[in-house]
Design a protein around this nucleic acid. Structure first.
Lengths: 242, 242
DNA sequence: AAGTGGTCTAGACCACGTA
DNA sequence: ACGTGGTCTAGACCACTTG
């Protein structure tokens, strides 16, 4: 199970990997409580402090969540995580508000070359593409094009577009068992197309902030490509550097 | 010195604050070695593990740097930190290269309302304003306007503009004893002015990515306002979310 | 009252860098 | 050889939550 001695990596690192594997394999799901530190230590034949160090690093990594007096849980993709970690647009006074969403289309289609590359899709794999407008304080501010592989997400196209929730990562987690853990964003300044401009009540040619985000699971599998075009007339993208 | 008992915060937190205070006051400077964990523990009358926990969190926060076998040091603002933490522009293939800089102006001037607000300056305080063009692979890509308070930075305007180094945060640290620890960035899409467009060899009206950065010391004092206008024809701003 | 995570101690041994 | 940080142990007590 765990290896010790010269040349092998440290025990707490092995325990980290073991815990991550249990989550990746689905043995433990978001929201589940995991065994107590003492129980894990006994099972693994190490001291509580060693288990504790492994868990501490996974908590810092947003993989696990500790609740004093209750236990340690697999992190869920809830409102707070969406707002504080995965949403960076604020209004001019610096306030963050999660926008509403209105879905324009949601269809199964062929993957574009960009989608194939960003989502590491084999040729011929279909995708689901969602277009939506997001409004902040009732003002249309962001146009989004969201792409996921048709498998396992094909149920997204069934039912009314109105049924699609505002926070998709929670849906991916609860309905499809896919948990978004990290993302890479690429930002550019672009020119509003006629279509985007009319959706956002802007003049065509107005500059927009384009965000290309690839969202990934814990084991770095790319799951979703999201291209957002944001009006930065009254909002900006906020990033903090340490 | 350290307080224990009900209602008081934990020992390791008090030690963290104590270590941060020593750095903020300048008692320890970037690059200095701090006392060993064992020595600190003896001085403070706590166990090594408690000191270790305090130091560990400061290392995660980029305040201290551990070097096995040598000791623990106050972090410096070196090349790696500039490139990996404070520079987010990459070329289209995702490679990060720190750009060259060519200074256009460096003058002492009156603060604009924006500068006064972002740098929390009292009325009547002068500032140093630097304009420079930054090139990546010999291609002008970024126009920057950099503002710092005239005190203690007035020496920046003496001497030839060519003397100003590419990496200003290292200069602030070594020459003025001011260490940048964190920054807040606000990104918008704007339209290139005639002047910016000509500097960047672009058509006027081309969209640019504007980055307004306020850089701060460890105790959150704002030090520098930097407004960068970036061509995103062949580059983008890269951000990773966890 | 029992169980959980949170803090703290004291000490062992290892890996690394310097002299 | 010595001092440093890095890992690991065993156990104590505290703070919090639940039954």
């Amino acid at each position: 199970m765990l290896t010790t001695g010269k040349g092998s990596i440290s025990l707490y690192m092995q325990i980290k990997e073991l815990l991550v594997a249990k989550i990746s394999k689905g043995e433990w799901s978001p929201g589940d409580i995991i065994p107590s530190e003492i129980n894990l230590a006994q099972e693994l034949g190490v001291s509580q402090g060693t288990v504790r160090k492994a868990i501490t690093e996974l908590v810092e990594n947003n993989v696990l969540t500790r609740k004093q007096g209750r236990g340690t849980f697999v992190s869920t993709h809830d409102f707070n995580r969406a707002l504080f970690h995965f949403f960076h647009i604020t209004d001019d006074s610096g306030h963050k508000v999660l926008p509403d969403s209105q879905v324009l289309h949601c269809r199964k289609e062929q993957a574009s070359p960009l989608e194939m590359s960003k989502l590491q899709l084999a040729a011929g794999i279909d995708i689901i593409r969602i277009d939506r407008v997001r409004s902040i304080a009732a003002k249309p501010t962001i146009i989004e094009t969201i792409t996921v592989a048709a498998e396992p997400f094909s149920n997204l196209v069934n039912g009314n577009n109105e049924d699609l929730p505002n926070m998709l990562y929670e849906l991916y987690e609860k309905q499809f068992g896919v948990t978004i853990h990290s993302a890479e964003e690429q930002l550019r300044a672009i020119v509003a197309s006629k279509q985007d401009a009319s959706q956002l009540n802007l003049q065509p040619g107005t500059p927009l902030l384009e965000i290309r985000r690839v969202a990934m699971t814990l084991d770095k599998t790319p799951v979703e490509l999201r291209i957002s075009r944001c009006s930065t007339q009254n909002h900006y993208y906020q990033n903090t550097i340490f």
